[in-house]
Computed example of a mutant assay.
Amino acid sequence: MKPQPVALVTGATSGIGEATAHRLQAQNYLVFAVGRNPSALDALRSQGFQARTLDVTDEPAVTELVDEINTDHGGVDVLVNSAGFPLRGPLEQVALNDLRSLFETHVVGPLQLSQAVLPGMRARRTGIIVNIGSTGGRFTSPGAGAYHVSKYGLEALSLALRAELMPFGVRVVLIDPTGVRTRFVEAQLEETRSYANDDPYGEFKRRYDEAALALTKTPGVMVDADTVARFVMRVVKAKNPKPRYIVGLSGHATILAQTLLTDRMWERITLSRLAPR
């Protein structure tokens, strides 16, 4: 029997990943907290984490880390795929390399990490993979199309992978938070941006920035990272968790509205937020 269960958390240098790593450590997991921010990794290391530099899109590095965990600690019991980043802007102007990077991080990376840990989980007939998605994987709105597209991809990945792994005793769960209040997100939204006069989307972008910032200041719209981390722990402890969960009252309300409204009505509502004032 393993002396201590092992968790591997990506995106652990901030936000949901960092909060989840702390929650898992408090429950006596040996936590491999990985990310790309050197100073944040140093801080995690000083707090007793197995903090490692890892780019989730680097296939050889992922394989090397999981091989090390398998050899030294008997394998990964909990994988939390939390690495990610936002990407906003009209789809016509999205740089394709940025879109590829988004897909590599939000879709290919989680699958790659899952493929790396799954042989051990299947052999032990136990384990859980938690993918941190977004309510943005269940609806779309103008101005963040690339992000929505990648999160829709993670939804499909999670649901298909879950069905395939059920016979092996491995659980896959998708957690879809509403907007999450983190230092990174707040800094991005509060940043003053200027747009060229000849940019055909200039006015649209200004209205998008204003609407997004206003939403963050509306009570009840966003949740903090630890709220999501507590939900991750609830899922990890559950004997038979559901395929996916929404975290945050505003997320539940948005998904319900999107379900009840026609596509044309939903379109009008999303565009109304961006109407000139």
Rank of each mutant, 00 (worst) to 15 (best):
G17H: 04
V236R: 08
V185D: 05
Q47D: 13
Y152V: 10
V170N: 11
V149E: 09
G109T: 10
R124L: 10
N240D: 14
L256Y: 04
L113R: 00
I132Q: 08
D209K: 09
E68P: 00
F139D: 06
A19L: 07
D77I: 09
G145R: 01
P3E: 14
G251A: 09
L41E: 01
Q27W: 13
T71H: 14
V107M: 02
T10L: 07
Q258I: 01
P219N: 04
P3K: 14
P86S: 09
I132N: 03
E18G: 07
I129E: 07
F231C: 04
A257D: 02
S39N: 11
F32V: 01
T135W: 08
P276V: 12
A116W: 01
V221F: 14
L165W: 13
L113M: 08
V170R: 05
G202F: 00
R171T: 10
I129A: 03
S150D: 08
D199M: 05
G220F: 09
T262Q: 08
G153H: 01
D72T: 15
L271A: 12
D77E: 10
T126D: 06
P167D: 09
A253N: 01
V173N: 03
D226K: 01
V108P: 00
P86Y: 05
V107S: 00
R124Y: 09
H22P: 10
R125E: 14
A43C: 14
L159W: 11
M166D: 15
Q112T: 15
A51C: 07
A160F: 02
R162S: 09
I269E: 07
S101E: 11
G74A: 06
M166T: 15
T182H: 09
R244C: 10
V9G: 07
A95H: 12
N37Q: 08
A146C: 04
T140Y: 03
A51M: 08
S134L: 12
L113S: 01
A238T: 14
H73Y: 14
V9K: 01
P276Q: 07
A26C: 02
L154V: 13
E104C: 02
P110S: 11
S141Y: 00
E155F: 03
P38W: 00
H22G: 08
K205G: 12
L79K: 00
V149Y: 00
L118F: 05
N28S: 15
D42L: 10
A83W: 03
E164H: 05
Y201N: 11
T182M: 06
V62G: 09
R268A: 14
R52Q: 13
I246L: 08
A83T: 07
P177A: 01
T53K: 02
